[in-house]
Design a protein around this nucleic acid. Structure first.
Length: 1127
RNA sequence: GCCUUGGUGGCGGAAUUGGUAGACGCGCUGGAUUCAAAAUCCAGUUUUUUCGGAAGUGCGGGUUCGAUUCCCGCCCAAGGUACCA
């Protein structure tokens, strides 16, 4: 009987579908195992051989786990919202749902042909309303939650409101917007509902905000950072600009630390973990606040930091009163704002109010008279208070100060400006090197920094404005490409060094990014190369604060250098100095330890049609959630899929897109004039919304009451093995982890990481084929110009790859070839050709369809000429390797050039799995894809190799047949046969568990070769062999299994058990090596002692020959392994 | 630049904790079978060689009786990331 794979495979695929062989049972007694592939986006192009690679691997694992007795969940579905269907809709008017449906059908047919053991009863599609109902529900949950840093998890907004009611927001530790104002419980209660809502929006895990987004005008939508490559859109390569828009955002930054920590407990590939780690970008350091002087201050501090400290120490024993009074004064705002411990001249005042030019001093200092004179000279009024009166009644003292202030003069502006501290600006910076604070010699702000316009001096205004304009003009892309050029402008303003009080110039420069940290840096030129370059370029002071380090050429970024010239930090190593610096900053109130993350909140709005609608309507400009029981809010119909003329998203075209809050349903826009009808959100959700939780839906795919039931989630828990591409590292895989953690926090899921183990399958690359066209300019014709160009156009000349390589190798070869070619072509061109001058660098490479090339790289020339994409080459002339013109009736061969590239339609290197299944069978395809190489590695596809695995299957088949008749013997297996079987069991089991599928294919080949050589047809061997092979080649295994007389699927058989006893040997073929090099082998009994081995080896003739009379210095014998003689 | 992964025949790739480098397959060469082709089977296939052997896993060192494997320094390729303070 023939191995008729087409028939066998079709039969078994039908059997599996009809019998639901791979349906996963809920709540089974068996242990669970969840194997998942990243679900595909069903594109119009269908599958190519690269797509199933991961699916085959996971299928092998799933089938293996079933043989091991696990209840395996191995589902599949479609990530069916997406841009291509929408763009197709824009071009053709075809509804994306229709396109998607068609594409899914194609995918399903293709997938079915490969024989996957998917449980299709659990299929999900992100674009189906039954599914996105729950995506919308999760969105509402996020809206209803805030992140409590106290408990370090997401909580219901109700708990936040309760806190506000009780104690205001000063004590609440939450991840929230930056611009939160502090309010008391009373204030909260007094706010209107709208005001309260506006405040709450700043705390919610999904929130509306005016965000600068990546707007792509051509696509008419916002793009995520990972959708932009080199400054242009990933899809289509269109330009991208920054634009401010009101958008939904996800507060993923709240989870930055937990996303980082979680990586430690999951078994994911290191490169993937690393890219998530980099993406989150945690850096530890300090945030430091610098005060700004808008011009050179007259009251420049002349004291060193130590002196100031000494002065403070000297103050009379009033600390209790001092702090008590400060606790009241510090709360004052506006023109009666006070500062403590500020310096005026050489003195440290107790409190100072710059707006009113008044100082408040405690009585009883020994140098009181001196101080009084000094303050008055500087133009300050003085209010004296005593410790006793403060301790008696601090309120009275505050009242007294307030009265005093009323009579105080406003500050006099003198020629040299005073510190305008009443309107003092503060610049907050983030640094990872607080230890280098004494090396700060200037500050740099991003040109977009909001303070720039406020602090710039008159004199510098023009220059700064020019610079800002120049940088704004340059696109993000240009700025990135041009890293070398140093540019910047001086603002004219100065900051005060918080420790030394020294004047520090404030610059702006585009090397500082507005989007990272605070958009401002403290520049330490001696310790940071960019600051160093900037300082050198603009001639700014570079202060060396490192011990014994030469910084005349470059900054010292070495973290082992000791700090010097840094007051109290001098002599300390980096780590200690950092800690101490932070400690001091915190003590003095201008800085604190801080952890900064690069991870930004994720923009969640897309101006597209084909995505999940938001369950949101707007009332008085504030977003309102639609109650969960009215979900799903179904995507409305539109007549066109483009943005509206007014620039609103496509949903702005929908006629039925308003929410009737009384009727609780979506109604026509006409009803908007009614009081209870409100406009619905026009944006849709991004592609990652649906894919961030789908793995949980497979656990309970048809549940209408919950996104997943508690029982299902408790049973299935998480994915045990997740297989997919590494391109999702910072997109899908990060967002999905975020949602999982959120849903875990809210008690909806039992685990906070969704996939225990993840494997990235490598990409299968295409092997493109090239033909080489000689440039038309190489030919000279005798005739009119038009005739010439016509000739060249009609008759392109191609030379073969081998010929091209010959020509490349020597200039003489080209000369000869020119003559040869001229005479050859003149035969065709009636002698009109007068000149041939081939230039190698002008030869054009053109992709040829790989299906036209055979295994020896020879092109089907006629096929190429008739290919639908090669209309211009119908009359082309092909020159073969041996310099002949290729005709169908001669045997001249044209070889193509080969290059490995990404598989893509435009490169004509796509190989379709259907054709392979048709020609060799699905089992061959499956084996071959695994045999290509290690799963995680990128590897080129070469169809030629498939014959190897195909003939292996034929050999396997033959083992079960004698003279074309199925014949398996019941006889007992021999020792040798059992050895082959058990060697195979051991190796295959190890390989599967290590995901080393390529090596198990060769193990099967060895086994079948060995058994063929042994002429083995024993059931005892051949039956378990089928179970071993069935995960890889399930169709042939099922067929032979049933021929053996089994009535149930081989999927129910248990995996053969390895018995070591079959592999026990009595002898060992020892490699005998000399100085570590194997020279010959010697078979010796394993029970020989070291001494006996040495004696036998030394007596051997080859040993004597090798040693050539010398005695070995040393003899190393590892029994059972090796003998090594050292000479 | 930084991070990660890799570098082994003509090609895809094996080599489990340091112990016979090149398994298995493709391709190629020769042979058998055939009217012929396909299919199938057999032998050979790292390089070099004076046919004894010798060299050999990107390069240069090191540890070891012994290194593709471990350590140090470099080169190259692929992927990620980027004025990240």
């Amino acid at each position: 009987m023939e191995y008729n794979f087409n028939e066998i495979e079709a039969n078994w695929q039908k059997y599996w579908a009809e019998n639901q062989t791979f349906k996963a049972a809920d709540g089974s007694e068996k242990p669970k195992y969840y194997v998942l592939d990243m679900f595909p986006y069903p594109s119009g192009a269908g599958l190519h051989v690269g797509h199933p690679l991961g699916y085959i691997a996971s299928d092998i694992y799933a089938r293996y786990k079933r043989h091991q007795g696990f209840n395996v969940l191995h589902p599949q579905g479609y990530d069916s919202f997406g841009l291509p269907a929408e763009q197709y809709a824009i071009q053709t008017g075809q509804h994306p749902a229709v396109t998607t449906e068609t594409n899914i059908a194609t995918y399903r047919t293709q997938l079915d042909k490969i024989g996957f053991s998917f449980d299709w009863s659990r299929e999900v599609r992100t674009s189906s309303p039954e599914y996105y109902k729950w995506t919308q529900w999760i969105f509402i949950q996020l809206f209803d939650s805030w992140y409590n840093l106290e408990t370090d998890k997401a909580e219901d907004v109700a708990t936040l409101v309760a806190l506000f009611k009780k104690e205001g927001n000063a004590t609440v530790k939450a991840v929230a917007d930056e611009d939160i104002e502090i309010f008391t419980a009373e204030a909260w209660k007094s706010y209107s509902k709208e005001e309260q809502e506006t405040i709450l929006l700043k705390y919610r895990l999904t929130y509306l905000s005016e965000t600068e987004v990546n707007w792509c005008p051509v696509l008419g939508t916002v793009l995520a950072n990972d959708e932009i490559v080199n400054g242009v859109s990933e899809r289509g390569g269109h330009p991208v600009v920054r634009k401010k828009m009101t958008q939904w955002s996800m507060r993923i930054s709240a989870y930055a630390q937990r996303l980082l920590d979680g990586l430690e407990k999951i078994d994911w590939p290191q490169p993937l973990k690393d890219s998530q780690t980099n993406w989150i970008g945690r850096s530890q350091g300090a945030s430091v606040t610098f005060e700004v002087h808008t011009d050179a201050p007259s009251r420049e501090v002349k004291l060193s930091f130590k002196e100031i400290e000494a002065l403070k120490e000297k103050r009379t024993n009033t600390s209790k009163a001092v702090s008590l009074l400060w606790s009241k004064l510090r709360k004052k705002k506006g023109t009666s704002k006070f500062r403590a411990n500020y310096t005026v001249g050489n003195l440290v005042v107790d409190y100072i109010c710059f707006a009113k030019n008044t100082v408040v001093e405690f009585e009883g200092k020994e140098d009181e008279a001196e101080r009084k004179a000094a303050f008055e000279q500087e133009g300050f009024a003085i209010i004296y208070v005593s410790s006793e009166e403060v301790e008696k009644s601090v309120e009275t003292v505050v009242a007294k100060i307030e009265t005093g202030l009323q009579f105080a003069k406003p500050p006099v502006k003198t020629e040299v400006d005073v510190i305008s501290a009443g309107e003092a600006y503060k610049i907050e910076v983030f640094t990872t090197r607080p230890d280098t604070i004494f090396g700060v010699t200037f500050m740099t702000l991003a040109p977009e920094h909001e303070l720039v316009s406020k602090i710039v001096t008159e004199a510098q205004k023009a220059e700064v404005a020019n610079y800002i304009e120049a940088t704004a003009k340059r696109s993000e892309r240009e700025r990135m490409a041009d890293v070398k050029t140093i540019s910047g402008a001086f603002t004219g303003a100065y900051a005060k060094h918080p420790f030394t009080g020294e004047k520090i110039q404030i610059w702006i420069g585009d090397y500082v990014l507005a989007s990272y940290g605070t958009g401002a840096v403290m520049a330490v030129p001696c310790g940071d190369q960019r600051d160093y370059d900037f300082a050198k370029h603009f001639n700014i002071e570079i202060k060396n604060i490192f011990e014994d380090v030469d910084i005349s050429e470059a900054a010292c970024e070495d973290k082992t250098a000791k700090i010097a010239n840094s007051d109290f930090l001098s002599g300390l190593p980096v780590k200690k100095a950092s800690k101490l610096a932070i400690y001091e900053m915190e003590k003095r109130g201008f800085g604190k330890g801080k952890i900064n993350y690069r991870l930004r909140d994720a923009v969640f709005s897309r101006q597209r049609y084909w995505g999940e609608p938001f369950p949101v309507y707007y009332k008085d400009g504030l977003p309102q959630m639609i109650d969960a029981k009215h979900l799903p809010i179904v995507l409305p119909e539109v007549e066109k899929y483009l943005p509206t003329e007014g620039g609103a998203p496509p949903l702005g075209r929908a006629k039925e897109w308003a929410w009737d809050s009384r009727g609780k349903k979506v109604v026509s826009n006409d009803k908007l004039k009614n009081k209870t009808v409100y406009p619905l959100e026009l944006n849709t959700m991004p592609g990652w919304a649906g894919s961030s939780w789908y793995f949980n839906r497979y656990m309970d795919p048809t549940n209408e009451g919950e996104f997943v039931s508690k029982e299902a989630a408790d049973y299935w828990q998480d994915i045990d093995l997740y297989i997919g591409g590494s391109e999702h590292a910072t997109g899908h895989l990060l967002y999905a982890r975020f949602w999982q953690k959120f849903l875990f926090d809210k008690g909806h899921l039992p685990v906070d990481e969704f996939a225990k183990k993840l494997i990235n399958q490598g990409m299968i690359l295409g092997t493109s084929a090239f033909v080489y066209r000689i440039s038309p300019a190489s030919f000279g014709f005798d005739g009119k110009k038009e005739e010439v160009s016509h000739f060249i156009k009609a008759n392109p000349v191609f030379i073969s790859n081998n010929l091209l390589n010959d020509l490349k190798s020597s200039p003489d070869a080209i000369k000869d070839f020119n003559e040869e070619l001229k005479s050859m072509l003149n035969g065709l061109f009636d002698g009109k050709l007068v000149k041939v001058d081939v230039r190698i660098n002008e030869i054009q490479s053109i992709h040829a369809d790989v299906s036209l090339v055979n295994n020896s790289d020879e092109l089907d020339v006629e096929g190429f000429k008739n290919h639908e994409m090669n209309k211009d080459y119908r009359e082309a002339i092909f020159i073969s390797d041996d310099e002949r013109i290729v005709y169908p009736d001669n045997d001249a061969k044209y070889t193509v050039g080969r290059e490995v590239e990404k598989m893509s339609k435009s490169k004509y290197n796509v190989v379709n799995p259907d054709a392979i299944c048709e020609q060799y069978g699905a089992d061959s395809l499956r084996l071959f894809e695994m045999f290509l190489g290690p799963l995680e590695q990128a590897k080129p596809w070469k169809t030629s190799g498939i014959s190897g695995v195909h003939s292996f299957l034929k050999k396997l088949w033959k083992l079960y047949f004698t003279n074309e008749v199925f014949a398996v013997s019941e006889e007992k297996a021999t020792k040798d046969e059992l050895k082959v079987l058990h060697k195979t069991i051991k190796k295959v089991q190890e390989d599967i568990e290590n995901f080393s599928f390529n090596t198990s294919v060769s193990t099967f080949m060895i086994a079948v070769n060995d058994l063929t050589a042994l002429k083995c047809n024993k059931k005892e061997i051949l039956e378990p062999l089928l179970v071993l092979i069935s995960p890889y080649a399930p169709h042939i295994a099922e067929e032979l299994w049933s021929q053996l007389g089994h009535t149930s699927s081989i999927a129910t058989a248990s995996f053969p058990v390895f018995e070591a006893s079959h592999l026990v040997e009595s002898t060992k073929v020892y490699p005998i090596s000399f100085n570590g090099k194997m020279r010959f082998t010697l078979e010796l009994p394993l029970d020989m002692t070291k001494e006996e081995i040495e004696k036998t080896v030394m007596a051997h003739e080859k040993t004597i020959a090798q040693l050539d009379g010398r005695a070995p210095k040393k003899v190393i014998i590892v029994p059972g392994k090796i003998v090594n003689l050292v000479g």
